[in-house]
Design a binder for these strands. Structure first.
Lengths: 333, 333
DNA sequence: AAAATATGGCAACTATTTATGAAGTTTCTG
DNA sequence: CAGAAACTTCATAAATAGTTGCCATATTTT
């Protein structure tokens, strides 16, 4: 591979000038620039990005830590981040945290050790204090789908409380009063907020909270199955079920059907996230849209703005959920 | 950040010795090693991976190019690759090719320019010749889910022809004779092979091929919808539908239900890939399992073996699909 | 005491960025 | 048209943080 020396030699120009042509940080006359460019072309020269990183103390890599790489939710998120950064010529290093404190910390270490210029995190197990401490290090951190007190400029978040609220509210408006709530793991901030929204909707409508109609499970199909099994075993009375995410809703629906509950007549179901497969469930799932893809690209924009000083417009840090009406909710009769 | 010099100074040891302790490529006495290690600890020293890369000509980064980052298929694949490489302390840089020739080439360039030690590709639009040419460059390439003549040692592939065969064969065994086939884009090797398998199953059972029962569409929900719409409009007679992947099956099922076709009584459907949501469709989708996750981790193992000289057992390059029976296929009566 | 093994200290090497002061060239001004 | 000002470019050197090879020396084993 050709080096900058060979280019400078062929173009009969000094090293510094070649560097200037590449980085455009100083004026170079048209004539010289062309000489340099054609020398580069002739030698099929590509700058060694590693050497550039070492000398400039910039790796042009952004670390991205997600809970899981598979799964429709993270897919959308990573996609948003990658698209934005790729367009800016930056590289994305992806790793996972599995929603476990040790693994999340380990993943963060891993990304920092790679000299990422910034890291974008979707972490759930790690504490706010840890993140505040981490943010004092030399690698800037950005959080997706999490709001940390003390890091207002580095968080991209969704108003999960509002999401939980509109889900339940929409059921109440359809006449439902006995509403079961399948909550996500209560150590995860978004799961907590969604449940709070649910409770607010109930209390604003003067519906007493029935603790038996709340069940906590994991954010997966299996969690949905376990949840509905619990509610049915408890013989609780309910005409509608709100699930803290679409995967749970999918599992719950499968289980409901296996137990001869017709949806939406016997049971209305509402999800959260509006994942790709939501419109292909049966019945088509009514859910709360979570603009994860946009949040991902927004996190990337924030990095481009703060870390690489690129001008960015329309920066938005708080996103709002919205209701997507489909067929899984019926009027209560 | 502390450098290797400070460590050597504090440990009263030479530079070379510190390096030897880190890389373990030469013998160091227990005593010295401990002195060095405790000096590192005291200074909270972490080797600068960029400088290591420059000096050793190893970036410890592996590039991964997939068609799309979202989508259940790629999620499983990336997950397999990442898990394996992460455990080996390697970094994964992910980018996308969108199944378009230009973008795929561009993505490859992008990864090579980052000095990846190897790149793992899931490319669909680029030609075999291009890949053979590419493999002559200094960056080793590995292909997932594609077999390229001339690169036998760098391909991990699925016997798609067999997959297509067993899907159709399973329907025939249930008594179906009029079987519609929803094919994937015929410039993609796996889509071609799956269709071939279908045709072989038909001919082995002496069923005449009806061209009207074959439709080509994209590997997405929308493709499934378009396909079934076509078959219904054509008023073709068929009791079963095989879809070239699960997403198409999901779309087709949604469309079928909207047109009052009951599944599996009126229409049996079979998919391909056995994606996470397949068991949560209604009816639960019978499909052909595609071990993408394993194929991803196998590609990673191949890299560890070839590029990093790590011993690996059970290397497998050709994978076999298997039938997963669920509820979307009925006996033809 | 000789041979084998460990370690030290040094230097060259990796490919770039960036600063510096000097020198060269062009353009403008009076 | 001379001189000044502004703009370009040069050549060099230091810095980035490591790896690696070499030979000399120290320590241990035979």
């Amino acid at each position: 591979m050709a080096t900058i020396y060979e280019v400078s030699e062929l173009a009969k120009v000094s090293l510094a000038t070649v560097s200037r042509v590449m980085n455009g940080n100083a004026r170079v006359s048209e004539k010289t620039r062309n000489r340099v460019l054609s020398a580069m072309k002739e030698l099929d020269y590509r700058p060694n990005s590693i050497a550039q990183s070492l000398a400039s103390n910039r790796s042009n890599c952004i670390g991205l830590l997600v809970s899981e790489i598979h799964g429709p939710f993270f897919g959308q998120m990573m996609s948003g981040v990658e698209t934005e950064l790729r367009a800016a010529g930056k590289h994305v290093i992806i790793t996972t945290g599995h929603s476990e404190e040790d693994k999340e910390k380990d993943g963060i270490e891993f990304l920092i050790s790679r000299n990422c210029d910034a890291i974008i995190l979707h972490v759930e197990a790690v504490s706010d204090e840890y993140l505040v401490e981490l943010s004092k290090g030399k690698t800037p951190i950005y959080l997706i789908s999490r709001h940390v007190e003390g890091l207002p400029d580095n968080c991209i978040s969704l108003d999960n409380e509002l999401g939980g609220y509109i889900a339940t509210q929409s059921l109440i408006e359809k006449g439902h009063r006995n509403i079961a709530y399948l909550a996500g793991p209560q150590y995860k901030a978004d799961a907590i907020a969604r449940l709070q929204g649910h409770k607010r909707a109930l209390s604003e409508n003067n519906i007493a909270l029935n603790e038996k109609l709340i069940f906590e499970a994991e954010f997966k199909e299996q969690g949905g199955i376990a949840g509905l099994r619990y509610f049915l075993q408890e013989k609780a009375e309910f005409s509608a079920l709100v699930c803290a995410n679409d995967e749970m809703a999918s599992g719950a629906m499968t289980y409901a059907r296996e137990h001869n509950l017709h949806m939406p007549e016997d049971l209305s179901v509402i999800g959260f996230d509006n994942v790709v497969f939501a419109p292909h469930l049966y019945p088509k799932l009514t859910t709360v849209d979570n603009p994860v893809n946009k949040m991902g690209s927004m996190a990337a924009k924030l990095v481009l703005k703060d870390v690489y000083q690129q001008e960015q417009h329309n920066i938005q840090q708080l996103f709002e959920p919205s209701l997507i009406m489909r067929d899984s909710v019926a009027e209560f009769t």
